[in-house]
């Protein structure tokens, strides 16, 4: 039976659609031209200028501080939330589930705006701390959902076996449950870190002077800066992302073998 070629065609078009802008951007980052409309020869000068931009480096530092702190806190809170949701079936957990679920679908503008009002009402000065608090808030739900997904496939008879063999609650949790769930928790943490490092909208609302993160810096460069410099910065970030994804994918394949 002959299959229709239409799905293949659409898939190819979608992939071209996905990658064409990214490829043009990468090619242009090596273009000597200031405006990037025409090819004026290969050049690395935008990369050289990138290294000397002090504001980018301090923004990167802020991004990593917030990203690591928010990932650590939201991974702990999200994992605990997933345990609670999976283990208990009470009215409390129904409310808990709704509270975890809703932030996933609330537009970022709303979350940014409402957190800004909270911080203003509480008289807090805006800065890295408020960005950190905001990031933990939206990361908890993602971590909880990823870990909950793994818990649903988890074979709890192993835990019961450990208990039957005399392990206490603490030992079972630390020596049996957490090590077995580590890949799921790690996946949740990775997602939280990516979301935190990439977040612009919410950070933009709750950032103060001196707490510019990399996405906020990139945004102001897009608005006012020179395009070739953003091309170079974007290429560096894309290479980092591709490498990380490739390694993750490779590890997954290794584990399957």
């Amino acid at each position: 039976m002959k299959r229709s070629r239409l799905p293949l065609l659409v898939t190819v078009l979608v992939l071209i659609f996905f990658y064409l802008p990214i490829i043009v951007l990468i090619v242009n980052s090596f273009n000597d031209s200031r405006f990037g409309g025409t090819w004026e020869g290969f050049s690395l000068r935008w990369y050289a200028r990138l290294v000397s931009e002090r504001e980018i480096w301090s923004a990167l530092e802020n991004t990593l501080i917030v990203g690591i702190a928010a990932t650590a806190v939201s991974t702990v809170l999200g994992t605990m939330a997933a345990f609670a949701l999976h283990r208990y079936a009470s009215t409390l957990q129904k409310a808990h589930y709704m509270l975890i679920y809703t932030p996933l679908v609330v537009p970022e503008v709303l979350m940014g705006m409402s957190l800004l009002l909270l911080f203003v009402a509480a008289g807090m000065s805006l800065g890295l701390v408020t960005i950190f608090l905001a990031h933990v808030t939206f990361c908890i739900s993602y971590v909880a959902m990823v870990v909950l997904g793994r818990l649903q496939d988890f074979d709890f008879s192993i835990v019961e076996a450990a208990r039957d063999l005399g392990a206490g609650w603490w030992t079972t949790t630390w020596r049996v449950l957490l090590p077995l769930l580590a890949p799921g928790i790690l996946a949740g943490a990775l997602l939280a870190f990516t979301l935190s490092v990439d977040d612009f909208v919410i950070s933009f609302f709750v950032a103060g002077p001196g707490s510019t993160t990399l996405p906020i810096r990139i945004y102001s460069m897009i608005k006012h800066g020179s395009p070739p410099l953003i091309n170079a910065l974007s290429t560096v970030l894309l290479v980092v992302t591709f490498t990380l994804l490739f390694i993750t994918q490779h590890l997954v394949e290794e584990r399957r073998k």
Partner: peptide, 23 residues
């Protein structure tokens, strides 16, 4: 149950529900 639920429930109440009410 309460001990394991409270951290995320409390955090999201303070940083998600309360801000919504303020808006």
């Amino acid at each position: 149950e309460i001990l394991v639920t409270l951290p995320s429930l409390g955090w999201l109440t303070v940083f998600f529900v309360v801000p919504g009410v303020i808006v």
